[in-house]
Design a binder for these strands. Structure first.
Lengths: 249, 249
DNA sequence: CGGTTCTGTTGACATGGATCAAAGTCACGC
DNA sequence: GCGTGACTTTGATCCATGTCAACAGAACCG
């Protein structure tokens, strides 16, 4: 009595990479697709790639051909300026899309580096463009994903342009916490996959400052940190800390 | 003997807003379109809007419905945080596209304010999505425009995260200069449409610092500034200044 | 055309975060 | 299991930029 619409012989490989059965689907893909559309989407991703900690899935200057959906693990993206400084431009976890920097010039403009052993779904970009011409919901979804990346970047610009060290760290922790919740993890207890230096680079601070502010937050009882293990004790307080100006000073 | 392909009765209004005859076309639109595609594009923009200096074409929280191509004039975009700080997230001149922040949530997340009397072409977003499903070159072009916005934001993050005041100003001036050249203006002499405070906000500096660095650049003979009028005397020197670390310190 | 307000310049001083330095902790390979 | 190197913490000091303040020019408007 199991009525399955349009069952087809699926190879193990195809099943393995099928979006329709992926637990992260609602993060990567539009919701509410018709069965027929979902099937078409399953053609989108044929390949998964793994990256061990420290390896990159693409580097600045590489030809752009695909986007990457983080399937498991954790990534950072960094740009390296001519004079050797590098800037972390983002951290990416399961269900998030990396690689949109490359679309504009057809060359990647940053490195995407795994911060732990990770797996990504390779989304060939030309296929994504083809499919999104046929499936409006996919088109719309993709545009939203890109737009949200822009909005996220604006948030970082606000953070870098006008917040103090404590506010930046508080914002960073609250943001991580939210993203972990959305993935079904604890909002208040997690392991940082990145070093103090990487956090500092992202937030425009030196690693010593990051370390000191963590210690200060711990002294104040807002969090407890031990190396990469963080437990947030007082989320409301951290939220309050973000966007506090002219208070003490 | 004038052989025009597919001439149709064009109202004056239609002709006025037609992309195919717009001097900024190569900045907004894909190049190398077939005649038939170009004609379809002329349906894209039906409306122009003007904004006097200080007026905004949209505000944070407004429902998102369209992108705006700057036809003439100059805009800034700003986000306002709850506690009243605001951050300039970009400056936009002729041929550039504003409004992509709104796609993700269908609400705008920043204000777009005219810094001088300006005119924009209204691009209804649903029509853009429809058309780009039919005209792959338009689809591709639009994706590139969004991607470049992301890359630009990464550049600002680098600037805010790791450059010193002089480097930031130098980068800002060089960037403006490049964009003016691309529009056929002088690379070395232009009017700033924004105040010191707006520059400072964009660059993560206070207006006094901006003013001081301008004065210092002038003392060194790199530029000459008088209020909003800037003349760049030594562009190579400014370029060299960007990404100079561990030199003098 | 004169007053008012916005914008820009410059100086004196304060301070948050950078820098330099040293020691402690952890992870990993042999 | 121990040594080596990567990461983190903490302290002392310094400096680039912020803050506060005063004034000077421009722009605007009745």
């Amino acid at each position: 009595m199991t009525t399955s619409v349009g069952i087809q012989p699926l190879s193990i490989e195809r099943l393995r990479t099928a979006c329709s059965t992926c637990g992260l689907r609602e993060l990567c893909l539009p919701v509410g697709l018709a069965e027929a559309e979902l099937e078409r989407l399953d053609d989108l991703i044929q390949v998964r790639r793994t990256a061990k900690k420290g390896q990159s899935i693409y580097r600045s200057g590489d030809a752009f051909a695909a986007l990457y959906a983080v399937r498991s693990g954790f990534f950072k993206t960094t740009i390296l300026s001519e004079d050797g400084r590098d800037q972390v431009t983002g951290f990416y976890m399961g269900g998030e899309i990396v690689g949109m920097d490359g679309i504009g010039t057809e060359l990647h403009t940053c490195d995407a580096v795994a911060l732990e052993d990770s797996e990504v779904c390779v989304i060939p970009f030309s296929r994504l463009e083809d499919l999104s011409r046929q499936v409006p919901a996919l088109q719309s979804h993709f545009h939203k994903v890109m737009s949200r990346e822009i909005v996220r970047d604006h948030g970082v610009m606000m953070l870098l342009g006008s917040m103090r060290a404590e506010e930046r760290l508080a914002a960073f922790l609250v943001n991580l916490s939210q993203r972990f919740v959305a993935r079904g993890y604890s909002p208040s207890e997690f392991y940082l996959r990145m070093t103090r230096e990487e956090i500092g680079s992202y937030l425009g601070l030196k690693l010593e400052t990051v370390s000191r502010v963590f210690s200060r937050f711990q002294d104040e009882g807002y969090i407890s940190v031990q190396q990469k293990h963080v437990r947030i004790i007082d989320i409301p307080k951290l939220r309050q800390l973000i966007g506090q100006r002219g208070g003490a000073c």
